[in-house]
Design a protein around this nucleic acid. Structure first.
Lengths: 103, 103
DNA sequence: TTACAATATATCATATCTGACATATTTTTA
DNA sequence: TAAAAATATGTCAGATATGATATATTGTAA
């Protein structure tokens, strides 16, 4: 992960330590963030393919439009649990989730 | 998911509605649980391969032995986030995680 | 068997995530 | 363009997950 990307992520609220701490946790942290972002963007792709608005998806998920927005962005405040549950709610199979992670 | 398995999961604390509610959420719920259990057992496999005790792994994860036990069982009280973070901490790549999910 | 190590289960205060709401910004349509 | 629709951002009370601790159970070597 380059400095540019790191700054971008930090701006969005990701806390990535710098210097030694950054180096130490980097691999794990960035893999986690990558994973999240892949699934997040997959969720958005899926929603648009289904021609749903965020409000409509929120209804399906029994959540709110604002949270769907955060879900799709991969906001630090949303968990993998919620992202994956959302994908499953839209009919995504575990195999498809695996594919998304590998992509 | 057969009745046998459902009862087994319920005993472990999974709340799976019955009748209509069960049918309605079944696909999503059971996929989620499956996913969790796959990654959980993968974590245990990984730990034993590394010849670590739960106490030792807990130290690495900055967690406790009891939570590692729950992690490996896929206890309802542990999130996918924590399971995946733990796998990553043990050096698992995103591709390997995907493989585990697909398996 | 008995002792010891490893794992499982229960509980709880604190931390983090969640849905909801308000509001701002961006995008689309007329 | 202007109005409307869609999406993004900020906040917060309540819900859920977390690490920690204590204790129970299981495995395992003497």
């Amino acid at each position: 992960m380059n400095r540019q990307k790191q700054k971008s992520l930090e701006k969005k609220g990701w806390k990535i330590g710098s210097t030694a701490e950054f180096l130490g946790l980097s691999e794990e942290e960035s893999s986690y963030i990558e994973l999240k972002l892949k699934l997040s963007s997959n969720l958005r792709k899926l929603r648009t393919e289904h021609k749903l608005t965020q409000v409509e998806l929120a209804k399906i998920l029994k959540s709110s439009q604002s949270r769907v927005a955060k879900l799709e962005i991969g906001d630090p405040s949303v968990s993998l649990d919620l992202i994956i549950r959302s994908l499953l709610a839209l009919g995504t199979s575990n195999k498809e989730i695996a594919r998304a992670i590998s992509s």
